[in-house]
Amino acid sequence: MEGLLAWLVITLIKIVVILAIVLGVGAYLTLVERKVAAHIQRRPGPMVVGWHGLLQPLADGLKLLTKEDLFPRYGNRFLYNLALVMALVPATLVFAVVPFGPEFEAFGIKVKPILTDVNIGLLLVFALGSMAVFSIALAGWASNSKYALIGSMRKAGIIVSYEVVITFAVMGPIILAGTLSTYDIVQNQIDQKLWYVWLQPIAFVVYMFAMLAETGRVPFDVQEAEAELVTGFTVEYGGMKFGLFPLVEWYIEVLSLSAIAVVLFFGGWSPINIPFLGFVDPLFFLGPLSPFVWFVLKVSLLFLFVLWLHWTLPRYRIDQITETAWKVMLPLTFVNLVLTAVFAPLIWR
């Protein structure tokens, strides 16, 4: 009975901590994005609200929350609101299986910094990832607008294509690790003294492509396409309802998929890896905090990489995106799968 209570309390604490971090960080990533974009474009970015615009996300949030709640005529109100829930919940749920660090002991209780270490963690990630298509299709349909409909159809096409690609891309690391549990995948990389990116460069590149496509980042942001579709499926949403979609797509999903990428390819919380020899930790002075810092550092680097692409590249056309998925990316992942199957026994020794 006591064990159950302790588990309940710990899980509740984990949920609160993860939710607070994810949503808070998600809001503040808007500021990061605006600052990065501004400096790429040779301008200072937000400077007025707080020191170097530090309070800008709060001001933006306040503005969005106080806006009038508009609803398009002849739209479907239930689906219109359901789309928001369908967007936010699956994207946040992914963090349930993201391991933030190694197991540690506090007050005599062993705690894994992962909400649920289920043994099908990765399956859960991609199952939840494909839920995003419902939110977008519903948003486009319920808005009763042609632009929204076209935008959501585009996005649905992309997600259908890239779900297949991303699933095959992560096969490689899964074969190497021999497990679907995210925590165990990291643990295996540490045990084998190998970041899987060294053996899976193809899978990593394909994964990055698919990640950009799924989150609607440039060069795959066709569902937004300001110029032709005036922000696509979100066109009929206003206020915070409008703000929620980019928050989910551009920040929470990018964060969660970056975290999964770090778990799969960069050894999660492990420090810098020298293949087959071991790990070098320049941050050893942080002691037990070091793994957490490494994890955050890697995720941030990946996120900044996405931002860098976003503010540099032009945009693909929808047919070119799906073409790349089926004709280039998918065959590549097949080749990678076969190669991995051949070389995997070397890793297992």
């Binding site: 974009a37 790429i40 474009q41 040779r42 301008r43 440039v218 060069p219 942001d221 396409a225 300001e226 110029a227 032709e228 503010w311 540099t312 590249l313 032009p314 945009r315």
Partner: peptide
């Protein structure tokens, strides 16, 4: 033109 094709940064460079 670059803005239409999604390259947002060129827009600001050109306008500068």
């Amino acid at each position: 033109y670059a803005l239409d094709l999604g390259a947002l940064t060129i827009f600001l460079y050109a306008f500068k």
